[in-house]
Computed example of a mutant assay.
Amino acid sequence: MKDLKQFNIPFIGLKEGSHLFEYHIDKTFFEAYQFDDFNDCAVNTTVDFVKKSNLMELNFTINGSVNVPCDMTGELFNQEIDGTLHLIVKFGHEYNDDNDEILILPNEAYQINISQYIYELIILSVPNKRVHPKVLDGTMESEALEKLEELRIDEDKTVEEKTTDPRWDKLKDLLTDK
């Protein structure tokens, strides 16, 4: 990942205690990951980095918006997102990120790159079904919605009974004669 050096945190020189890092994420961040589902992005990220004697805690908080197409109409809109992630960093013999909440770095590591965690947090904070707010309140006007309204089955209208073969009607009479 080129151009993501700004997300390296050299923890070896930091004193024990809490340190705050702030980042503004835009579309260029996602271009580094070759992710193009967002048309635009404006997300503020804060990382509360707590260094302790034998481990580190990282608390990620994001809030902002991503410009995405509506799943129903295809219209672009700004989807508000927010999310948090808590990560514990420990030291061991080799790198291990099998656990989602615990990262093990080699003993000789001197910095951590947090860009992957920010990327995943933003992606997972976007809802699976993205619906334009105007669709939800009924003020959206688009060709797709007009076509959906035209093809909608109205449950209030009574469905006319289909004509059946009179031979079957005689069998139905047997059931009701009891």
Rank of each mutant, 00 (worst) to 15 (best):
K51R: 12
S115M: 02
L136N: 14
G83S: 02
V126D: 05
I81D: 05
V68M: 12
D36K: 10
E120T: 10
H86W: 05
N99D: 15
L85K: 14
V50T: 14
T84L: 00
E101V: 09
I104Q: 13
T45R: 02
G74A: 07
N96W: 04
D71G: 05
V66P: 00
I81R: 11
D40T: 01
D82K: 08
P127E: 14
L87S: 01
P106Q: 01
D137H: 05
D48C: 09
V89E: 07
Y95M: 12
N99I: 02
H19A: 04
F77R: 06
D137Q: 09
N78G: 03
K90Q: 13
A109H: 13
N39L: 12
D48F: 01
C70W: 06
F49P: 00
V126K: 00
S125H: 10
I123T: 11
K27T: 12
H93S: 10
N107I: 10
N107D: 14
N128E: 13
V43C: 12
N67D: 13
Q34P: 00
S53N: 10
V68A: 09
F21G: 03
L55F: 15
L58M: 15
Y23V: 12
F35I: 02
E101S: 14
F91D: 03
F60S: 06
D71Y: 12
K90H: 08
V43F: 11
N67I: 13
S115N: 03
F38S: 04
D82R: 06
H86G: 10
F60K: 08
V135C: 05
N44L: 09
M72F: 13
E120N: 11
I25L: 11
K134G: 04
V131A: 10
D97C: 09
T139G: 02
Y95E: 13
H93M: 10
I122Q: 07
H132C: 07
K129L: 09
E80Q: 15
V43K: 12
D98I: 11
F38I: 06
K129A: 05
I112K: 11
V131E: 14
D97V: 06
Q34N: 11
K52G: 10
E80V: 15
N44H: 13
D26M: 03
F60Y: 13
L136I: 15
N78A: 15
Y23R: 03
I62Y: 06
A42I: 02
L105Q: 07
L105E: 07
G74E: 00
E75I: 10
I104F: 15
H132Y: 09
H132D: 13
